[in-house]
Design a protein around this nucleic acid. Structure first.
Length: 202
DNA sequence: GCACATTATGGCGTTACTCA
DNA sequence: TGAGTAACGCCATAATGTGC
């Protein structure tokens, strides 16, 4: 493998989560999602949701975190994952949320739950120029413990008068909060002009 | 003044629950 | 049983803020 990558041992991980589990998860998500790029081209938001789901699925398989046994909860309630044996209403330290985004820093959610978050930053490369045979590349993975007040309410103009998105919560100062939380980082991909691009000359 | 990050606001998708 | 509501999953872009 020729990819240039960096693993940062200094990032705090939630109890029981290992770097090995994250490594396997990255491989799994990249492989599975590469086969679904058509969805990205069709509708990016749906693809991104699927990326998050793949992330949760991988961590369920490779770590001590697991999806809720109650399928209703697993499908739509916080958290995506909980530590094995942490019970029905796990404390924030045992909650793990899997999120995927193609944006460099920003993080949006529909809820302001406290807990651990794993963020899969991905890049879609239909020409497969960065990784031959692979059209989806995870270029950074952040692991961070967030509190309720790290989230800022972002209102919505949607209402009786007309459409719009439903309200969201956005992470305050994402770049500052996440800068040193990257447990994994590709060195041959960087942020330029607020966009993700392959580094020149690689 | 430029480059970049952040904020605000526009959009779309699914599924489950509640209640008339 | 069907409509409305609420919960979840996101992206894009223009305007504004900030640091060099």
């Amino acid at each position: 493998m020729t990819r240039k990558e960096n693993w940062n041992d200094g990032v705090a991980l939630p109890p029981g989560l290992t770097v090995a589990a994250i490594r396997k998860s990255i491989q799994y998500v990249e492989k599975e999602s590469s086969e679904l790029v058509e969805i990205y081209l069709e509708q990016a938001n749906v693809f991104s949701a699927i990326m998050g789901i793949f992330g949760a699925k991988a961590l369920d398989a490779f770590s001590v975190y697991e999806k809720s046994k109650d399928s209703n909860v697993a499908q739509q309630r916080f958290p995506d994952l909980r530590r094995r044996g942490s019970g029905r209403n796990p404390p924030p330290d045992s909650c793990l949320e899997s999120k995927a985004s193609k944006r460099p820093w920003a993080l949006q959610s529909h809820y302001d739950h406290a807990g651990w978050y794993v963020i899969w930053r991905y890049w879609v490369d239909p020409t497969m120029s960065v990784d031959p045979g692979r059209s989806v590349t995870i270029w950074r993975v952040e692991v961070v413990r967030l509190e309720k007040n790290d989230w800022k309410y972002e209102g919505s103009g949607a209402g009786k008068q007309g459409g719009g998105r439903t309200h969201t919560f956005g992470l305050r100062w994402p770049a500052e909060k996440l800068r040193d939380k990257a447990v994994y980082e590709r060195l041959d991909i960087r942020i330029q002009g607020g966009k993700v691009v392959p580094a020149n000359g690689e």
